[in-house]
C-alpha cells in the first residue's frame, strides 16, 4: 500500500494543488489561501520524505541510483530550500508560487519517464560505493540551489518589468526586484560549493572505480561547463558589479545547462554515465 509509487502519485497531486493555491493566493490575497498552500507544501514534503524512505526500504540501498529516484530527491531538496526561506524569512510566502511550481515540474518530469526508467534495478558493480551516495547528495543539493535561483531569476525579470511600468500588477506581492536578485545570488552561492563538492566526489569515486579521476566523458565535461558558467556569474557579480537582468539571465542559462547535464547528456550524448 505505502510503496514508493503510491506515495509518488500522492505527492504529484499535493504539489500540484499547493502550486495552484499559491498562484491563486497571489491574485485573491486571502491569507487563508496562503496558509492552505503552505500546509499542503509541508504535507507534500513529508510525503516526499516518506517516498524516499519507502524506496530505500524497498531496494535496501540509498534511493539515488537512477533518473527517477534522483528526481524525487531533487523535488524534496527544492521544497526543503523553500521551507527554509519560508521559516527564516516569513514574509516571503509568495515565493512558493514559483518554487513549489518548479518542484512540481520536477515530479511531473519524473512521472513522464517510461516505466522501465522508474523500476529499481539492482546496482551494477561500479555504482556500489559510498562515494556514490555522497556524490549524488551533494550534487543534488547544488542542483536544487540552482533550480531555486532559476525560478528567482525568471521572477526577477517579470518583477523588474512590472516595477518599471509601475501601476497595479500581478507581481506586486512579490518582494522587490532588488531582494529577488540578492536571494537568487544566495541560492547560487549555496549551489556552487555543493556542485563543486559533487564534482570532486565524483572524481574520487571515478578514481576508485576506473583508475582515473577525469576522463572527459560527456557528463563530466558538462558538469565542468556548468561550473564555468556559474564561475563566470560570480566573477561578473563580485568583481565587475553585474546586477539585475544580466545576472538573472545568467542564472537562467546556468540552469538550462544543468538540465542538459542532467537529462540531455543521459539521453542525447553517449558516455559512462548513461545509466543515471
Amino acid at each position: 500500500m505505502f510503496n514508493s509509487y503510491f506515495l509518488f502519485d500522492i505527492i504529484f497531486w499535493v504539489y500540484l494543488i499547493a502550486a495552484c493555491c499559491y498562484i491563486f493566493y497571489l491574485s485573491i490575497r486571502k491569507e487563508i489561501v496562503g496558509h492552505l498552500a503552505f500546509a499542503l507544501t509541508v504535507i507534500g514534503w513529508l510525503g516526499n520524505t516518506a517516498a524516499l524512505a519507502a524506496r530505500t526500504m524497498e531496494t535496501g540501498r540509498a534511493p539515488y541510483a537512477n533518473l527517477y529516484e534522483t528526481m524525487i530527491l531533487l523535488s524534496w531538496l527544492i521544497v526543503m530550500c523553500y521551507l527554509v526561506i519560508e521559516i527564516k524569512y516569513l514574509r516571503l510566502r509568495v515565493l512558493g508560487a514559483i518554487i513549489v511550481s518548479i518542484a512540481f515540474l520536477a515530479i511531473g518530469a519524473a512521472a513522464m519517464l517510461p516505466y522501465r526508467y522508474q523500476v529499481a534495478e539492482p546496482l551494477i558493480p561500479a555504482l556500489q560505493s559510498n562515494w556514490l551516495i555522497l556524490h549524488v547528495i551533494t550534487t543534488f543539493v547544488g542542483y536544487a540551489g540552482f533550480a531555486v535561483a532559476f525560478g528567482l531569476g525568471i521572477l526577477y525579470l517579470f518583477k523588474e518589468r512590472a516595477e518599471r511600468k509601475k501601476g497595479f500588477s500581478f507581481f506586486d506581492r512579490f518582494p522587490s526586484a532588488e531582494l529577488l536578485d540578492d536571494l537568487g545570488y544566495r541560492f547560487i552561492a549555496l549551489g556552487f560549493p555543493f556542485v563543486t563538492l559533487g564534482i570532486i566526489l565524483g572524481a574520487i569515486w571515478a578514481n576508485y572505480a576506473w583508475g582515473g579521476y577525469w576522463s572527459w566523458d560527456p557528463k563530466e565535461t558538462w558538469s565542468l561547463i556548468v561550473w564555468f558558467i556559474y564561475a563566470g556569474y560570480f566573477h561578473g557579480r563580485l568583481v565587475r558589479g553585474w546586477r539585475g537582468r544580466k545576472t538573472a539571465y545568467f542564472s537562467i542559462i546556468g540552469f538550462l545547462a544543468v538540465i542538459f547535464l542532467y537529462w540531455g547528456v543521459s539521453f542525447v550524448l553517449p558516455g559512462l554515465h548513461a545509466y543515471a
Binding site: P218, T221, L224, I225, F228, I229, A231, H235, R240, V265
Partner: peptide, 15 residues
C-alpha cells in the same frame, strides 16, 4: 570571464 566562456564553448564542442 572570457576564458571561462571560451573553455565552456570548447568543452561543448568536445561533447
Amino acid at each position: 570571464v572570457t576564458l571561462f566562456f571560451l573553455l565552456a564553448i570548447g568543452s561543448i564542442a568536445g561533447t
